[in-house]
Design a protein around this nucleic acid. Structure first.
Length: 427
RNA sequence: GCGGCUAUGGCGAAGUGGUGAACGCAUCGGAUUGUGGCUCCGACAUUCGUGGGUUCGAUUCCCACUAGUCGCCCCA
């Protein structure tokens, strides 16, 4: 049998896992500071959650879902994004009835999209995202954006660009949509086939087209910002105002269109400017989704959130040559020579570890020399060498690896004395 | 779904249509018996992604497949 990981997936090996853990801890810590609480929803949902939530004309639904029938002929889909499941859970568990509103949630876990893998794109990837449900205060839009930026900047990223836009409310969007159709329709034949199909489906996306970006109709296309009604306009201005208060730099881009149908009002992306970053520069995407809760049968509840990929975050760290490493150390490496000593070391290790001492030994029948090398590789602070002589007279050699200094220690009081030695050093 | 590039030991990497597939790193063993990080010596790919074809003969040429990688669409 040939062993091979499925396409577009990756193993995160022990060396890399440490970085993941640091990032995850940081994300959790920030969420705690902002009072966002973790929610864990299943890895798969009924397919309708996504077709209705995300929108069945979107690329995600049309060509990227891992959909399957289970043994009971239920149609299920591995979650391609986190918002729809969270909203489903919010409605199903009636979280809107909780006195603590808005409901501020975060999630951290794998998402699945059937895509052609390339740099920054996987079939299974890990998203960290937050959702704030229940408030239509523009300050919470700014809070959500600030939270995302906080994570990046705490990890040391510098080359970030925040781009924001407003899609307005339903009425604004409809008026803008009509204007766009009227604008492009006369010459739609000159556009690429994608744009031609976008005209009726989602004309906003034409603005985002790379193929036709130089067409004469592009530069003077109606901007959404000119079609926002007063309420939408005021809302957007407020969001910008709060970002200004927080000294968060941003760029308003009226062509910023997000790929999911549920967005309205605020949309934003955080991108990396770093040299040498791949073609996909979006690190984080989010926006407001008023109306989605109602779509799932809940009460009228506004919402806003974002999602970011840990993989891309790590790529951005690499692009900026930021290393977040904390090397693992071992307190003690036990070298036992001979059967009696080995018996003793088995018990010794057990006791040491019980005392919170990080200890290990050789299991590969290496010579003492190779064991010392191994201890060195494990970054052991100390090595204790126990042989027949030591067993007989109850003393052993404790070697400090950094200095090479050796001291004779008693074996019967070893654990307590060693613990003291290690802990006193740390203070 | 489409296109470019790539595929040799644990890792990096050379190479040729023809008897034993360089080299570097790592690993293991040795250089006075039980002592690391330096040095020296030795060991370490019946095999060159998989399958097929061309050929007297292919790891080297051709095809397909698979995978990786980068890009397009789009996204995290």
């Amino acid at each position: 049998m040939k062993v091979q990981i499925p396409r577009g997936t990756q193993d995160i090996l022990p060396k890399q896992v440490k970085l993941w853990q640091i990032i995850e801890e940081k994300a959790r810590e920030i969420c705690q500071n902002y009072r966002y609480e973790e929610i864990r929803t299943p890895m798969f949902e009924h397919t309708e959650i996504f077709t209705r939530g995300v929108g069945d004309t979107t690329d995600i639904v049309q060509k990227e879902m891992y959909t399957f029938l289970d043994r009971g002929d239920r149609e299920l889909t591995l979650r391609p994004e986190g918002t729809a499941p969270v909203v489903r859970s919010f409605v199903e568990n009636k979280l809107f009835g909780d006195p603590n509103q808005p409901t501020k949630l975060y999630y951290l876990g794998p998402m699945f999209r059937y895509e052609r893998p390339q740099s920054g794109r996987y079939r299974q990837f890990v998203q960290f995202g937050v959702e704030a449900l229940g408030s239509k205060n523009p300050a919470i839009d700014a809070e959500v954006i600030a939270l995302a930026i906080e994570l990046y900047s705490q990890l040391g990223l510098k080359n970030l660009k925040l781009v924001i836009n407003s899609l307005g409310d339903k009425e604004s969007r409809m008026r803008h949509r009509e204007a766009l159709i009227n604008h492009f329709k006369p010459k739609i034949g000159e556009f690429c086939s994608d744009c031609q199909s976008r005209l009726e489906k989602n004309p906003l996306r034409i603005l985002d087209c790379k193929v036709d970006r130089d067409h004469e109709l592009m530069s003077n296309a109606p901007s959404i910002l000119n079609y926002l009604n007063d309420e939408s306009k005021q809302y957007f201005d407020k969001v910008c105002h709060y970002l200004d208060l927080l000294n968060i730099n941003y760029e308003v881009d009226a062509t910023l269109v997000r790929g999911l149908d549920y967005y309205n009002h605020t949309t934003f992306e955080i991108m990396s400017n770093a040299e040498g970053f791949g073609a996909i520069t979006t690190l984080c995407g989010g926006g407001r989704y008023n109306g989605l809760v109602e779509e799932f049968g809940g009460p009228e509840t506004p919402g806003i959130g974002f999602a970011l990929s840990i993989e891309r975050l790590i790529s951005a760290l690499e692009a900026e040559a930021i290393t977040i490493e904390q090397e693992d150390t071992l307190d003690l490496f036990v070298i036992a020579l001979g059967e009696v000593a080995e018996d003793f070391s088995v018990k010794l290790l057990y006791e040491l570890r019980k005392q919170q001492i990080r200890a290990d030994r050789d299991y590969m029948d290496r010579k003492i020399k190779a064991q010392l090398k191994a201890a060195n590789r494990y970054n052991a602070k100390y090595v204790v060498i126990i042989g027949d002589d030591e067993m007989n007279n109850g003393k052993a050699m404790l070697k400090e690896m950094a200095t090479g200094e050796q001291t004779e220690v008693n074996l019967d009081t070893f654990v307590a004395n060693f613990k003291q030695r290690v802990t006193s050093r740390e203070e």
